[in-house]
C-alpha cells in the first residue's frame, strides 16, 4: 500500500516586517502509516493548517524534511490532493468539468472519462453533472470538491476542515460518506478539524497540537472498531482525554463540597 508519510524535524517560520518571526511549527516529528485516517486537532494558531500546507507542497519547510513513500516532498503534486473548508469549486465550470479538471490539466482525461462519472456517483451527485456550483447547496459542493480531488487517485488526501461550514446533520452524514470513501479508496487521509467528536469518530490516530510555540502535544491512537457510536463509553473517555489535553477538561478534582 502507498501513502506513507514521514515528517522529520519540520520547522516553519513566518517572517514579519520589523517584528520577531512567528514560529508556525516547531520541530515536528510524525509518521503516518499508509492507508490510515489521521486527524489534526487543536486551537487556532497551533499550526495544523500550516502542517497540511507543507504536506501539500503549497509552502516549504525552513528546517527538516517531509517524505511521501520515502521521496522528499517538493512542490505540489496530484499525489497529494487537498480539500478546503470552502469547496473552492471553479464557478465557471459545471460539476462534471470541475471533477474532470485534474484529469484535463494532466492530459489524461480522454482515457478516463468513465472515471469522472464513477466518482460523481461515488459522492452521490448523479444527475447534477451539468449544474453549476452556485446552483448547489454547500454540502453538495463539498461532495463535488471531494470527487474532484479523488478522481486523480492521490496517495494522500488532505482535508482542511472540509466539513466546517456545514450544518450539524449534513456534517454527520458527510462523516459517514467520508469513511465509506476512505474504505473504498484505500488511501491515507489527513484531516484538520476543530471538532473533537469528529476526530474520534473518523480517525485511527488523533494528533493533538498546541500553540505558542506550535508543536505536537500528544498522539492518541483510537482503538475502537467501526462503526463507532458517539455514545459509547470508550468514545466518551477518548473525548474527555483529548479535551483535557486541550485544557477544556474542567477542574473536576478541585470541586469542593460544602456540607
Amino acid at each position: 500500500m502507498v501513502g506513507e508519510l514521514s515528517i522529520k524535524g519540520v520547522t516553519k517560520r513566518f517572517r514579519r516586517e520589523g517584528e520577531e518571526d512567528v514560529i508556525a511549527l516547531n520541530g515536528v516529528n510524525l509518521n503516518i502509516k499508509a492507508g490510515s485516517f489521521v486527524s489534526l486537532i487543536g486551537p487556532s494558531g497551533c499550526g495544523k493548517s500550516t502542517l497540511l500546507r507543507l504536506i501539500a507542497g503549497l509552502s516549504d519547510a525552513d528546517e527538516g524534511e517531509l517524505q511521501l513513500d520515502g521521496k522528499k516532498i517538493v512542490g505540489t503534486s496530484y499525489e497529494r490532493g487537498l480539500v478546503f473548508q470552502n469547496p473552492t469549486l471553479f464557478p465557471w465550470l459545471n460539476i462534471q468539468d470541475n471533477v474532470a479538471f485534474g484529469l484535463k490539466v494532466r492530459h489524461i482525461h480522454r482515457q478516463n472519462k468513465s472515471l469522472v462519472k464513477e466518482y460523481i456517483k461515488l459522492v452521490g451527485l448523479e444527475g447534477f453533472e451539468k449544474s453549476y456550483p452556485h446552483q448547489l447547496s454547500g454540502g453538495m459542493c463539498q461532495r463535488a470538491s471531494l470527487a474532484r480531488s479523488l478522481v486523480g487517485k492521490p496517495k494522500v488526501l488532505l482535508l482542511d476542515e472540509p466539513l466546517g461550514a456545514l450544518d450539524a446533520f449534513t456534517r454527520m452524514n458527510m462523516q459517514d460518506e467520508l469513511l465509506r470513501i476512505w474504505k473504498e479508496e484505500n488511501m491515507t487521509m489527513i484531516m484538520v478539524t476543530h471538532d473533537v467528536d469528529e476526530a474520534i469518530y473518523l480517525s485511527d490516530k488523533v494528533i493533538v497540537m498546541s500553540p505558542r510555540p506550535a508543536k505536537i502535544e500528544q498522539v492518541i491512537d483510537i482503538e475502537m472498531g467501526r462503526p463507532r457510536a458517539r455514545s459509547n463509553p470508550d468514545f466518551l473517555q477518548y473525548r474527555s482525554k483529548i479535551l483535557k489535553i486541550l485544557n477544556f477538561g474542567g477542574n473536576v478534582e478541585d470541586i469542593s463540597y460544602y456540607i
Binding site: 501539500a56 505540489t76 478546503f84 479538471f101 490539466v105 494532466r106 474532484r148
Partner: peptide, 18 residues
Amino acid sequence: VQNSYFEVSRTLGAGKLA
C-alpha cells in the same frame, strides 16, 4: 482571483500554463 483557486488547481496537478 482568489488564491485558493490557484492552490487547488496546483494540488490537482495543474502546471503554470494550466
